[in-house]
Design a protein around this nucleic acid. Sequence first.
RNA 1: UGGGGCGUCGCCAAGCGGUAAGGCACCGGAUUUUGAUUCCGGCAUUCCCAGGUUCGAUCCCUGGCGCCCCAGCCA
Length: 553
Amino acid sequence: MSAPETATPSNFIRTIIDEDLQSGRCDQVVTRFPPEPNGYLHIGHAKSICLNFGLAADYNGRCHLRFDDTNPVKEEDEYVEAIKEDVSWLGFDWGEHLYFASDYFETLYQYALKLIKAGTAYVDSQSAEEMRRNRGTLTEPGVESPHRNRSIEENLALFEQMKNGEHPDGSHILRAKIDMAAPNMNLRDPALYRILHAHHHRTGDTWCIYPMYDFAHGQEDSIEGVTYSICTLEFEDHRPLYEWFLRELEIFVPQQIEFARLNLSYTVMSKRKLLQLVTDKHVSGWDDPRMPTVSGMRRRGYPAAAIRTFCERIGVGRAASWIDLSVLEDCVREELNETACRRQAVLNPLKVTITNYDQLEELDAPNHPQRPELGSRVLPMSSELWIDRDDFMENPPPPKKYFRLGPEREVRLRNSYIIRCDEFIKDADGEIVELKCSADLDTLGKNPEGRKVKGIIHWVSAPHAQKVQVRVYDRLFDQENPDKAENYLSALNPDSLQISEALVEPSLIDAKPGETFQFERVGYFTVDSKDATDGEPVFNRTVTLRDTWAKMK
RNA sequence: UGGGGCGUCGCCAAGCGGUAAGGCACCGGAUUUUGAUUCCGGCAUUCCCAGGUUCGAUCCCUGGCGCCCCAGCCA
């Protein structure tokens, strides 16, 4: 009845696929997510993953996970493993379709031979500097290489020698013979193979020539039967080249479709910059909870489902877009509100003594106010409590606007009694150190008659409280677009991490790594998966609760 | 003043010639033992601008303007 309509919003790529399927131009959907294993995946990659795997799932096709490992000097196995873990965690399964560009090295080599024999590729022996100079500029055509018309035999021989390691790095390069005057710079005799005496993470020292992206990517797609090769906008100018190679090689030509990459406010998305944040120790690692990486978000406590919702919500288009961080945070709250159990924790304690109460009680507190099926836990109550300093004001604003504790004011202790502040004690510096309150013992589980108490505050019984470390995270950058700063590092938020101690209700001491709770009235907190030990959880603040009171102030 | 793209609410984004979906944000108000959640309501007479075609244009044409990408032996 209630059609589980995957309210997947339409987008231009779906439109293209629908048309192709209907016209018969294409009869199946095969996509691929092709990361280079030179860093960890970030939220921008998540967008691509959700798009590619999502399309394959919706159209009953398949999506490959293919590592584009054509540059041995930057790639590592550590990244391969991390990427696989992230894709799985996001909820996607590549099944049998795990591939590596390096598996195609021999085939790619044969393809290069084919072009040389056809006279459309040649070995150039200019230096990188000369090549750069002869490429021309955006407005002037390039100059043809003096080696451009070497004979096929000579090219074959030289390329063979390159492959055999007889020439040093940079001494020769295989180029396509297209058009040095092409207005599209990518067509000015692009490089196909460079000499690199480097150890490859998978092929070891088997090769000392490696294909360039342009000569590898399309062929990989073609070999795998990919029907839609979805990539970001900056590859648009490469499409003519992508198709040129496949046509020259007379192999299947997949359709390349470009979409706008994700930009998120208050963060950077370039792998180079993320790597620098890690190597320069501005963060603790790729999985630092402040990082926009999939592993960082996981450690921070963002649920995979929230990230998927986010990727769906932001849509897919071709216009450069800048998504506000609040969209992501809203997705996280939406998911966590539904799933996280409620607990009480005090981050900034102020002592409260209840003068007319001298017992120890075990109160029952529900785990989730809207979901009774989630059960309840025991919440110990005594006459000595900790409450949050923010919940008391010596000189509160007019009663209409403020309903927390203050002199002579009443407030509900969440899941417990209503108390009234009779006096407050200050130390020598004038700082408030303790409140003396009296409880209305007839208000447990019911409201008093004749008056209504609007304020509700959270608390923890002092003798039962457990001390835990809390890491309060804020945005890593305090400028909306760090890339606009002179140097993005100068936009780093000096207060992005504040470590403090919190006093929490006893049930929290057994929290397991990765478990998320809502500390009522404060925010969602997730047990760190690296630094927590048994009986000593460390809580990462995942995201705050919406706070309309903060806005009023 | 080479080529390739893009321009619909503060931020995303549907719409594909028939008279502007939705989300986030924001602003009201209701319910509430989380100032949370939930719930109601508000939020583009207008689609970068100017002409044109048409009974009718955000959607078609022409001309402007603005923004993004490309000169790695990176991907």
